[in-house]
Design a protein around this nucleic acid. Structure first.
Length: 478
RNA sequence: GGUGGGUUGGCCGAGAGGCGAGGCAACGGACUGCAAAUCCGUCUACACGGGUUCAAAUCCCGUACCCACCUCCA
C-alpha cells in the first residue's frame, strides 16, 4: 500500500514517492504574525501536523519547516496604527500563535525560520535571478527589484493559468514594472516606513517582497529540491505560483508535491472578514477543550470547506467524548501493568492506514476509530480482556497519529496539582457515595437521588457500573 | 473574462458505477430502583433536467445556486 496525496500542480491524486528513500522534507507556509490567531489560522497547522504524524508513523525521517512572516505591509500598517514598533507586534503575535499551536497539540516544527532572519539568503537569491535575466531593478529609481514573469515561460503552471488570461490587479501600481504582473522581490525603503524595517542591499536599503522568503528559506533548510510544500488554498496564487517561478528560474527543482488545505468559513465567508473576537482560538477554547477542537478539525477532510458553527463544534466534542469515555473505562478495566505496544498489520489498523494513505482520509479514519470504540465497549461488557487489550492498543496508536490521544501528556494541565485536586474530590465524593449506597440498600430512592443531585450540582456526574459507582467531572477533565 | 472547488438525510460529515461510512439528534428494545453509560434495532439522502448503462449519489451533457483565487490573506 502506498501513500497517495492530492497534488495541486498535477490537479490529481498521485503516489507519494520521496526524493530520497525514507526521508521527507516538508515546507509549510505559516502565518504572517500580524494579528491574534483565529480558528481558521490553526486549521492549516493541524492539517499538516496530521500529515507529518502519518509520515512519522510510516517510519519516514521527516524534516518539517514552517516559517513565519514577520515583515510585510500589513505588519507595518498595524504597528503604526497601534503606536508600537513592528517587531514588538510580531513578537507578541508569535507568542500567542505558539500558545494556540500548543493548545491544539501541534508538534513544534524541526525549525521555524522567520523572514527577517534570512535577508542575506534572499538577497543572494535575488542576485542570482538578476544574473540569470529573470529579475530587474525598477527603472523608476524606487529601489524595488521585480521578477520578470515574461522571462519565465512556465509562469502559471502551478495554478494552470496563462499570463494573458490573468486580470491585472485593480490597484496595480505599474511604477517601474515591465509587466503589471511582475512581482516585487525587494521593496525599496520608503521614508514613511521605520528605518528598523529596512536592510542594506545592492539596490539600496529596503525590505524583502513577500514571496522570496519562502524560496530562500525552503532551499536553505530543505535543499533546492524537496518533497512537499503546503499551505492554505488562498496561497496557491499568487504566493506559491511566484515562489515556484522564482525558485525554478533560479535553477532549483523546488517542491515535488503541492498540498493545500481548504478554509474554515463562518456564515459562508472567510474568517478574516468576520468581525468580532469569538473565533479567536482562546475564545473558542472557553467552550471546548483543545483536543475537542482538534477533533472537530480532523474529522473533516483537509481539502473540504468547513462551515464553522458552535453547534457543530459541540457535536464533535460529544462524539469525541464517546471515544474518550471508552478509553477511560478500558484503562480502569485493564491491569495496571498493561502497556500499549506499537501497532502492526492487523485490523483495525489496516483499515485506518488505508484511509490515511488515501490522501489523508481522516473522516474515514475517524469512522474506523468509532467502529473500534463500539467493539471495545462490547469487549468491555463481555470481559474479553485479550480483545480489549488489542482494541485499546490500536486506539492509542490511531489516536496518536491524529494527535488526539487524550492520555498524551500534552493535554493534561502542566502542573501536578491536578492529581492533588482529584484526590481531594475523590475523598469527598466517596463519602457522599457511601451515604447514597446506604440509602440505596435501604431502597430509600428519594435520599439516594437527592445525594446524586447534590453531587451533580457541583458539576460531577455519577454513574453506577457493575463494579460500583464512578464519578467524572462534567464535560471531561479540563 | 480566466482558474479551481462545491450542492448528500433534522444537523455535522464521508463516499465516487451494484454490496447504503461514521457521529450527533430522534424513536423502539435490552440493562438499571430511576438515571447515566453501553449494546441491539429503526428512521429521514444524494441541487435540478436530460443522457449512457442490466445497474448512477457516483460517468456524460445542460441548468441553477454557492464558494475561493486572479499580486493583503491559513
Amino acid at each position: 500500500m502506498n501513500l497517495r496525496l492530492y497534488d495541486t500542480a498535477a490537479g490529481d491524486v498521485r503516489d507519494f514517492v520521496p526524493l530520497e528513500d525514507g526521508k521527507v522534507g516538508i515546507y509549510v507556509c505559516g502565518l504572517t504574525v500580524q494579528s491574534e490567531p483565529h480558528v481558521g489560522h490553526v486549521r492549516s497547522a493541524v492539517n499538516f501536523d496530521v500529515l507529518r504524524r502519518w509520515l512519522l508513523a510510516r517510519d519516514y525521517d521527516v524534516t518539517f519547516i514552517r516559517n513565519i512572516t514577520d515583515i510585510d505591509d500589513k505588519i507595518l500598517a498595524k504597528s503604526a496604527e497601534q503606536g508600537r514598533p513592528w517587531y514588538n507586534l510580531t513578537y507578541d503575535m508569535k507568542r500567542l500563535l505558539d500558545k494556540a499551536y500548543a493548545d491544539l497539540n501541534v508538534l513544534p516544527p524541526t525549525y521555524e525560520p522567520a523572514a527577517t532572519g534570512h535577508v542575506p539568503e534572499m538577497l543572494e537569491l535575488i542576485d542570482l535571478l538578476v544574473e540569470r535575466g529573470h529579475a530587474y531593478a525598477a527603472e523608476d529609481g524606487s529601489g524595488d527589484v521585480y521578477f520578470d514573469v515574461r522571462s519565465w515561460p512556465a509562469y502559471g503552471e502551478l495554478t494552470h493559468q496563462s499570463i494573458d488570461d490573468m486580470e491585472p490587479a485593480e490597484d496595480a501600481d505599474p511604477r517601474g514594472k515591465r509587466d503589471p504582473r511582475d512581482f516585487a522581490l525587494w521593496k525599496g525603503h520608503k521614508p514613511t516606513e521605520p528605518t528598523t524595517a529596512s536592510w542594506p542591499s545592492p539596490w539600496g536599503r529596503g525590505r524583502p517582497g513577500w514571496h522570496i522568503e519562502c524560496s530562500a528559506m525552503a532551499s536553505k533548510y530543505l535543499g533546492g529540491a524537496f518533497d512537499i510544500h503546503g499551505g492554505g488554498v488562498d496561497l496557491r496564487f499568487p504566493h506559491h505560483e511566484n515562489e515556484q517561478a522564482q525558485s525554478r528560474a533560479a535553477g532549483f527543482g523546488f517542491a515535488s508535491y503541492w498540498l493545500h488545505n481548504a478554509w474554515i468559513t463562518t456564515s459562508g465567508e472567510k474568517m478574516s472578514k468576520s468581525l468580532g473576537n469569538s473565533l479567536l482560538v482562546p475564545e473558542v477554547l472557553k467552550q471546548v477543550r483543545g483536543i475537542e477542537l482538534r477533533y472537530y478539525m480532523v474529522a473533516a477532510h483537509y481539502r473540504s470547506h468547513v462551515e464553522f458553527s458552535f453547534e457543530a463544534l459541540q457535536d464533535a466534542a460529544a462524539a469525541f467524548r464517546r471515544i474518550e469515555g471508552f478509553l477511560e473505562r478500558a484503562r480502569t478495566a485493564l491491569p495496571a501493568e498493561f502497556h500499549v505496544g506499537t501497532s502492526s498489520g492487523e485490523e483495525p489498523w489496516l483499515s485506518f492506514a488505508a484511509a490515511m494513505d488515501d490522501d489523508l482520509g481522516t473522516p474515514a479514519a475517524v469512522a474506523v476509530i468509532h467502529d473500534a470504540v463500539r467493539l471495545g465497549n462490547k469487549q468491555l461488557t463481555e470481559k474479553d480482556e485479550d480483545g480489549l487489550k488489542s482494541t485499546y492498543a490500536h486506539l492509542h496508536a490511531m489516536l496518536d497519529v491524529l494527535g488526539l490521544n487524550p492520555f498524551d501528556a500534552v493535554w493534561s494541565g502542566a502542573s501536578g496539582d491536578d492529581t492533588k485536586l482529584t484526590n481531594a474530590i475523590d475523598v469527598l465524593v466517596a463519602g457522599l457515595l457511601e451515604q447514597r449506597n446506604e440509602a440505596r440498600a435501604a431502597k430509600d430512592w428519594a435520599t439516594a437521588d437527592a445525594i446524586r443531585d447534590r453531587i451533580k450540582a457541583a458539576g460531577i456526574e455519577v454513574e453506577d457500573t457493575p463494579d460500583g459507582p464512578r464519578w467524572t467531572i462534567d464535560g471531561g477533565s479540563n
